[in-house]
Design a protein around this nucleic acid. Structure first.
Lengths: 369, 369
DNA sequence: ATGAGTTGGTAAAACGATATACCTGGGCCC
DNA sequence: GGGCCCAGGTATATCGTTTTACCAACTCAT
């Protein structure tokens, strides 16, 4: 209804004209059908659609018209088989459904990647595997052995990440979103000044008089966990301070609640006056845990998140957080992949550095503290 | 590091043995390489990997060993070209990035779909297109014309949805997640008793004495908007009541805030004592809007969401909501797709009906009201 | 008139699998 | 021993493109 397509008979009548198909079995048009309709050879059609020149303008037009009339596009599988190029990029998410559901990071990234992929007529082949060990490796292996994709985009690099070596052996071009660990041999994309957001966040707290600042970090094996802890430390060191406490979490809301309870269980003089969480979901969970314990936010405790999820604006009080330009990261990763594949590509997008978004969950330190 | 793969020389030395390739250009193994290594014909290998019988046990083992040694799997593109089956399912998300970021519905669905797809060695080709008119149609068209997928899974059916007719013309098998509009010709999956959740939600409010219940629904063109409004009405009618007010939204947080403000601007006697929102994100936004206006939740206003996002447990007060079994829906859609494609498939999973999850944002109606 | 270069095209060989049709040697029955 | 069947293969056409090599016809300089 309302979709502008000519009646189906157009297609089948033309196909019938060619009397190549068994009657009744209306098949999709092929390059040969187009060539026949345009009155030229198959290779002439191929030259036209691939802009390879050597075809006169009138012939070219005839071919294009015929293709449009039959609604023909080159079959992706045939092209892939012939050219060793699949026109598809793979992505494997090795995370539990739960984390995926709370954290739209992944979705935003995909959305950015697609922005670049779609105009180039590339597809994104997604695999969500659980966290079982080996599942991720199997997924990459299959992608490579079956030659389903031209390359893969990775996220969440870990320390000593085995994926890079695996992909090198599989000869699958790879682009990492985020910082690789030291000299890990992988192409990667990230903002110019990765550290800006967290550094500003710490300064923001310091300006408000906080001196006992705790950090609830992500899992130890994540590269960004280590980097961010380092930034946290050095930003405090600028004023001659040290982290009050640093706790490790698995990114889950439960861990955030547990960490918050532990931090707030101390005597008033030992209690942190501010907590930075590794992501917004944890920050919100922690903030509510604190309030349930009777602490006012931000009156008695300032809370800071990371990632600027929409969620942060919806809660009360609104969450102070660090915004990352996730969509641009996705686009940059796709562009970098095209570069690796020697394909034409747009200039890499500018990626905004992580930026502090001050909202309501942070405030001046309480008088007595 | 730590990944268990033999050194790369294994592969290239075997390839070299066959002296088929240009030196230096280490190519991926093909079925011919496997056949040569096993000392059989190409077709024998094909018969083994496709379980077509007629091959003795010892030969079969030799072939399997050779394939494992070369780390060979049939090339997906070659199989697709030959067999007209792509082993990939498509999915097109025609939503703004914003909505996608707040609402993990889509992610959960994908995760469920993948659970079925992965064991069958099918891939999921994802396209996120914006909301520009025509973008979605172009995406489906490309998927079909380039023969990239065997079928597509759809969500969010609209009234008079043009996609079904389009896909029929494109001859692309389709499965809809959710209810089709009336007699729309499309296979679909949904829970047995779709209406249970919302009906229970209304009863829950009625039991607590609420009589002025408002509903902030989704966009008018969504099928479930219409169905749910109908359920809302009929659940109230059971007690001889009528909806106090019904507002339409575009699913955005802004709309939720605006609707809440409008509903609460009325005189005390005209104000709703409870608001049902079409999804959790809106419910949270609305709840906080109410609190900023000075209304206690649930003391002066009960708030109900829909979908049971993890978010609902994180906010304060925790959100009463209706849980949907989204992952099972995804799995069911994949199974149904396999059925359409005449492929072996697991039995369709049981889909839990939508269920009321009572939490803190609903309570007894205030005395004065 | 001859040869070289250009233009606009054609024919046919890949690409990597699968499926069909055909072969071969042995066992079995009469 | 001839005919037949069957297990266990093999050879080859096919899927829909792209690309290489080639060719015919025409223009132009010699």
């Amino acid at each position: 209804m309302g979709v502008d397509v000519p009646p189906v008979t157009t297609l089948s009548s033309v196909a019938g004209q060619m009397e190549r198909r068994k009657p009744g079995k209306a098949a999709k048009p092929t390059i040969a059908d187009v060539a026949a309709l345009a009155g030229v050879s198959v290779s002439a059609v191929s030259k036209v659609v691939n802009d390879r020149g050597g075809i006169s303008a009138p012939t070219r037009k005839r071919v294009l018209d015929a293709a449009a009339k039959l609604r023909w596009s080159p079959s992706a599988t045939a092209v892939a088989l012939r050219g060793a190029r699949t026109r598809a990029i793979g992505m494997v998410a090795g995370r539990s459904t739960d984390v995926l559901a709370t954290d739209p990071h992944f979705t935003l990234l995909i959305s950015g990647i697609e922005r670049e992929l779609a105009p180039a007529d590339f597809g994104l082949l997604l695999h969500i595997v659980g966290e079982e060990p080996g599942a991720e490796e199997r997924a990459y292996r299959r992608l490579a052995e079956e030659r389903r994709v031209d390359g893969v985009i990775l996220t969440e690099s870990r320390i000593g990440d085995p994926r890079f070596e695996l992909l090198r052996q599989l000869r699958l071009p790879a682009v990492l979103v985020g910082e690789p660990w030291r000299e890990d041999p992988v192409a990667s994309v990230g903002a110019e000044d990765q550290e800006a957001g967290l550094r500003d966040a710490v300064r923001h707290l310091l300006e408000w008089g906080h001196r006992r600042i705790a950090y609830v970090s992500g899992p130890e094996d994540r590269v960004h966990t280590v980097y961010r802890r380092r930034v946290f430390r050095s930003a405090l060191a600028e004023r001659g301070l040290r982290p009050w406490r640093v706790l490790v979490s698995d990114f889950s809301a439960q861990d955030a609640v547990a960490a918050t309870r532990e931090l707030l269980a101390a005597d008033a003089a030992e209690r942190p006056t501010a907590i930075l969480f590794a992501n917004d979901t944890m920050a919100v969970a922690g903030m509510n845990a604190a309030r349930r314990l009777g602490f006012d936010v931000p009156g008695e405790l300032s809370v800071l998140g990371h990632d600027d999820l929409p969620l942060g604006e919806l809660v009360f009080p609104q969450l102070t957080t660090v915004a990352q330009d996730v969509e641009a990261l996705g686009r940059a990763a796709a562009v970098e992949m095209f570069r690796l594949l020697d394909l034409p590509h747009s200039p890499p997008p500018a990626i905004r550095p992580p930026t502090l978004i001050p909202r309501e969950s942070t405030g001046p330190v309480a008088d007595g503290s």
